[in-house]
Amino acid sequence: MTTVLSARGLQKRFGRTIALDGLDLSVEAGEVHGFLGPNGAGKTTTLRILLGLARASGGEATLFGRDPWTDAAELHRRIAYVPGDVSIWPNFTGGEAIDLLSRLRGGTSDKAAYRARKERLCEAFQFDPRKKGRSYSKGNRQKVALIAAFATPAELYLFDEPTSGLDPLMEQMFNREVDRIARDGSTVLLSSHILSEVEALCDRVSIIRAGKTVESGTLAELRHLTRTEVSFAHDPAREAAVTAIPGIHDLLIDSGRVRFTVDSDQVAAVLPELARLEVQGLTVAPPSLEDLFLRHYGEELAPAEAEARA
């Protein structure tokens, strides 16, 4: 595996505000990497540094082993980028903007093939390229950048919250396209604060908060850090037996159901106990990143708030 993108101890200050505070990120060739964090965590700043639109105040970033600031234009031949909040030219049509961006990226040398790709994508994303830019909604402006990105092959795709303006149907289209480029061997870095999106698409995930990487790994690895939720119908006669099961957390009996969580690697140990109790209506929900997310932010918010009050 070769590392396509790496950032070590990346820092970025805007005046006295610290946007990035020692961020680490590593993306291997061919992987779809989720870049998760709440709004304001520094996702966009990171992407802008990786793209050479902003310069890091400290730390090191490389793309394909090169410096994204000094070699920006060279690197951009291999990169497709979709900003988080896409602006397009108000007096150009969507089709004109897509053509312009594709031509600037040099993706239109085979005219017929390009036209076919563009038409396919316009159809897939249900996009009318004949309207003026000023009349497009946020979602449609997003589509302009997405179509331009997908219409020209790239080695690395950088998406900044790509689906924030898209409806669920279009989100599926987006997922399908990401699958396609991943199959073709491209590398993808996808920033998002929507967990389901990342869960559906990504092989590996980095979670950042307040400009720092707090967690990084494959989805399976991260799931070890979370707990599986178990629930079944409540039977008052067995309540004592349930509370005695070893290794359970957050026990809650509510509206006729028993719920608790189990460390994900302890699920197998708990199941025989449940079988012995002959529980009814058993559900075992896999751990979601949502929990991981909440735990990370939930835990660290408290001291931060205390600090703010002090």
């Binding site: 050479g52 639109l53 234009a73 060279e74 900003p83 961006l101 990226r105």
Partner: peptide, 8 residues
Amino acid sequence: ELVLGTPI
């Protein structure tokens, strides 16, 4: 930003 995201 869109233009400078291309090889310009």
